[in-house]
Simulated scan of single mutants.
Amino acid sequence: MHAAAKVDCPEILLPTPRSLANGLRYGWDLNPGRAYLARDEDGAPVGLLEASIPTYDNTNLVWAFGTVHPDRRGRGTGSELIAYAERLTAELGRNSIGLSTFDLPAADAFARQHGFERKSVDVNRRQDVAGLDWSVVQKLYDDAVAASSAYELIRITGALPDELLDGMVAVTASINDAPKDDLDVEDDEYSPERLRAYEEAQLKSERTLHRVIAREKATGELAGHTTITVERERPHIGEQNDTAVARAHRGHRLGALVKSAMLLWMRDQEPQLAQLDTWNAESNNHMISINEQLNYRVITRIPDYQKSL
């Protein structure tokens, strides 16, 4: 992975051996994927296939990401990895395979050569938290507070209290309104059990989970949230896991409110936090506009391809 990243995307955030192992044990929400290491005849590692196999929803789909060592490219290793992913998909009784690649001409040509169609583009952005102009964050927060006077904020580290769990299921499901572009995928399905599984997976993966939730004062209804996780092995690194606002509560700048409130909170709660990564569909203009106000910069674009079997 490190050898390939030096060539394909030097700034991409890579796992450590420890965090990679945790990912294979626990995944995002106790639904871990699989990884297959390809070796040559001498036993040297030449390629890696990572496969995500959804179980909560989209159970007809396998999503793949293949990596070939730069010294072994052009020898058919990538084609063997894709063939293996297609066999795995068929063996699991699934009929659709997705493929993510770096946004490189050779990767695009490879995907199309193997019958995949480009369906969407994800963009990885990174915020230099250590170099933030906090006056900009404070102004964004103050302006959002003025536009959202009917709401209050709840800050939670770790597991949700039981009384907020059902409300958070509904808010989390609001992420389904984010653009899917041309991807042939179902909406994500959420339940109290899945949210608890997400919390457990983050804890077991040695990440601290922080949430900022917007709640309507008059009704007590949860309206929006943002979550980040901070690695304990590398506590200067955080990842934005989710930001969503329920449809009935949009138009009050709640997205800007929870994201700016999170940063101001983290300045005190996680003072060592230096970088924060986030992912959005390239077409998600609303969330991207908030990120740009908060000085995120583009690290890479990841096209998503799909193929029916």
Rank of each mutant, 00 (worst) to 15 (best):
G131W: 01
G131M: 04
L132K: 01
D133T: 09
D133I: 07
S135F: 04
S135I: 05
S135Q: 14
V136T: 14
V136Q: 12
V137A: 04
V137G: 01
Q138H: 10
Q138M: 09
K139Q: 15
L140Y: 04
L140T: 02
Y141R: 05
Y141H: 13
D142G: 02
D143L: 10
A144D: 00
A144T: 00
A144E: 04
V145W: 09
V145R: 11
V145I: 15
A146C: 11
A147C: 10
A150D: 15
A150V: 11
Y151E: 08
Y151M: 08
Y151S: 02
Y151R: 07
Y151L: 05
E152V: 10
E152L: 12
L153F: 07
L153R: 02
L153I: 01
I154Y: 14
I154P: 13
R155M: 13
R155G: 10
I156T: 09
I156A: 09
T157H: 12
T157Q: 15
G158N: 10
A159Y: 11
P161Q: 09
E163G: 12
E163A: 13
L164R: 10
L164V: 08
L164T: 06
L164G: 05
L164W: 02
L165N: 06
L165C: 06
D166I: 02
G167S: 09
G167E: 08
M168H: 07
M168Q: 07
M168T: 05
V169F: 12
V169Y: 10
A170K: 12
V171L: 08
V171H: 03
V171M: 07
T172G: 06
T172F: 06
T172R: 12
S174M: 04
S174D: 06
I175P: 00
I175T: 11
N176G: 07
D177F: 09
D177M: 08
D177A: 13
D177G: 04
D177Y: 05
A178I: 05
A178Q: 12
P179M: 01
P179N: 00
P179I: 01
K180F: 14
D181K: 00
D181G: 02
D182S: 14
D182K: 11
L183R: 12
D184P: 00
D184I: 12
V185P: 01
E186W: 06
E186I: 02
D187G: 05
D188Y: 13
D188M: 13
E189K: 11
E189P: 04
Y190W: 15
S191Q: 11
P192E: 05
P192Y: 04
P192H: 03
P192A: 03
E193V: 07
E193F: 10
R194P: 01
L195G: 06
L195P: 02
